[in-house]
Design a protein around this nucleic acid. Structure first.
Length: 267
DNA sequence: ATGGTGGGTAGCCCA
């Protein structure tokens, strides 16, 4: 197998300021070329740039928001910010798109935080659920026009396959695994022939979780879900040579409820 | 398994 020449990681960090030491440890131990963070929960003005600068991640695109949401893409390779989509049309900071320059150049990297969608899987009773579906619908329209090698990564807040949750039947009415969300995500996937790298490298039905609730009862029973994803356009997907779920971070002290994913490409 | 545990932030919203 070819060794990677370009590595990309994604991690819902659930407050980058609270967990800046964990981000440093991850970057030191795993050394991806690019890291896409979601739920940074800070305005850009308070983003902890110093640590990233010190470790050589001198290129950053931060789409922040005070208190909620927020995404950031940090890189050792030069990059150029190209977009900040608002697929929910409500000004929440849930996307930043960059073009990677230099080695690994030419790849478009879309860092996205799809809305969680609230608790009740009914758009009438729960507007957040409808907003999540609308987000996916607008993103699907966008995806149809993508015409460059592109990688979409982030917290999708949907576990699409039966084997992406600990109990398919029990979760059919739980937001993140409802047939409606799964269908909406499939439409997005079909819009560009995106390749689900998580399942390219760890084929179904193998265990492949990226999130465990903070609620202890579920965590102790390994009741995880695969909510985080890396999707590549077809030609780029053919160049992926490695894929890792860095599950150990979930056992660090005061962890994020999500763990990082990392993919290596031989470009 | 029908509760519970974490964030940001300053009375709740969000996950």
């Amino acid at each position: 197998m070819a060794s990677p020449t370009f590595t990309v990681a994604t991690w819902n960090i659930n407050s980058v300021r609270l967990r800046i030491d964990q981000v440093e440890r991850f970057l030191t131990e795993q050394a991806p070329d690019v890291l896409c963070l979601q739920e940074i929960k800070t305005a850009e003005a308070l983003f902890p740039h110093d640590m990233f600068e010190r470790l050589g991640y001198t290129h950053r695109a931060v789409h922040g928001q005070k208190g909620y949401h927020g995404v950031a893409t940090v890189s050792r390779l030069p990059l150029r910010e190209v977009s900040r989509h608002d697929w929910q049309a409500n000004r929440e900071a849930r996307h930043v798109g960059v073009e990677v320059l230099g080695a690994g150049g030419g790849v478009i990297l879309e860092n996205v935080y799809i809305p969680a969608g609230g608790d009740i899987p009914d758009a009438q009773a729960n507007p957040k659920f409808g907003q999540k579906l609308a987000f996916l619908e607008r993103m699907t329209r966008w995806a149809e026009a993508v015409d460059r090698p592109t990688l979409i990564v982030g917290d999708f807040n949907i576990a699409p396959l039966d084997c992406d949750v600990y109990d398919h039947k029990a979760l059919l009415k739980v937001v993140s695994h409802t047939p409606q969300e799964v269908a909406a995500l499939k439409a997005l996937g079909d819009a560009h022939g995106w390749v689900d790298l998580g399942r390219k490298h760890i084929p179904a039905p193998e265990r492949n979780y990226s999130w465990w609730s903070y609620r202890s009862y579920w965590r102790e029973k390994d009741q995880g879900r695969r909510l985080d994803h890396m999707w590549a356009s077809p030609a780029l997907a053919a160049q992926s040579v490695s894929h890792t779920i860095v599950e150990e971070t979930r056992r660090w002290e005061q962890p994020s409820d999500h763990v990082p994913l990392m993919t290596g490409f031989a470009l």
